[in-house]
Design a protein around this nucleic acid. Structure first.
Lengths: 192, 192
DNA sequence: TATCTAATTAGATAATCATTAAAGTAGGTG
DNA sequence: CACCTACTTTAATGATTATCTAATTAGATA
């Protein structure tokens, strides 16, 4: 995880109002005006803070008529909170991140046709991760997929969707629970 | 843990320079000028940032001649990083914290003589914690004490130092490892 | 259509804060 | 003593940002 993401995360939490918002949302979803009321602040202020929290991935929202219910993305919260513990240790994700943006471009150009099909599946772990990363970008964070949907989606990249699906699980980009699939926010959020 | 402490902690980490300092210190202790050199900044800037980090308990320091070696207090780091995960859930420490500052004052007045001796040991858990908190303030965070030192220290409060010592362990203000005693930073830091 | 409600944007203000140069402190050594 | 080195303090500057009012957008309803 890059240093800048860590900074932004902590900047987002380095404000009493936003901590109070998080404390409120730990107890359940709330809409903007309710938050404003409980904190004694005006709606624009809440909008401002929700934007900051959203930028670092901490907020999920659901619309009902014209009121928006905000809730906490606890997985991102947990992941981000723990990221500082390993910063500088060079272990794990830190290593993976040493692939530069240009490397990424080159790898994608090498392994995908210009129509976007996967030509061959890389053996080298670094390249594998870049390729999976790329394919996973079309999936929605937080959405639960049926196996059939995942198969359909992966087919756009390669006929052998079963292998790809298995790789996504093995490299932890997704996890499976009774044949339903979901992106692993811990791995995926930082790709944006 | 109070909301304000959480805010200050994250504010301390919400700055790229300080995150880089932490990343450096994860690899081992460094003195000020070394940090300044590695980051391309002037010494006063480092002083400024170390003060911020020290305020939230993240820094331990050791002096050798006139150079000061800074190192990370990883226990505080871990504890503080995880505090956000339970904020607002009302569980654990949150409950204890509902003793107001005035309550504290009253309890200490009740259980200590004006010379500072402990009159009687409270049975009620809340009061017990306030009393232990008070006595523990004279001990140094991070220092390893021999059993004999602890006994000496506690004698200033009450003849029955053995009971007090046991209570400190049971209430997790200290922990013991082969007859050496140390403050539990997780419980103790926030008292300051 | 007009109207209501909730959320957002724009612009202004005041406060906070990172950085540095210059001067000062503190300990050590010749 | 004078001198050196490492850190700190002070004061100034420039950038960021939390909050608000006023105006605007978006969706729903009558």
């Amino acid at each position: 995880m890059q240093l800048n993401k860590i900074v932004e995360f902590h900047k987002a939490l380095g404000d009493l109002t936003r901590i109070r918002i998080i404390a409120l949302l730990q107890q359940g979803p709330l809409h903007g005006q309710a938050i404003a009321g409980k904190l004694g602040l005006k709606p624009p202020t809440i909008t401002h803070h929700m934007a900051k929290l959203r930028e670092v991935g901490l907020i999920k929202e659901r619309r009902d008529k014209n009121t928006i219910y905000f809730s906490l993305n606890t997985k991102i919260l947990e992941m981000s909170a723990k990221a500082i513990l390993n910063v500088g240790t060079g272990g794990g994700a830190e290593m993976e991140m040493s692939v530069t943006a240009e490397d990424r471009g080159a790898i994608i150009k090498n392994f995908f046709t210009k129509e976007g099909k996967l030509k061959t599946y890389p053996a080298q772990r670094k390249k594998k991760l870049v390729v999976l990363e790329h394919m996973v970008k079309g999936l929605e964070l937080g959405k639960v997929y049926q196996e059939k949907e995942i198969n359909e989606y992966l087919k756009q990249y390669h006929e052998d969707y079963a292998t790809l699906r298995r790789e996504l699980i093995m490299c932890q980009f997704m996890y499976r629970e009774n044949n339903q699939y979901e992106l692993n926010p811990v791995e995926v959020w930082w790709l944006k």
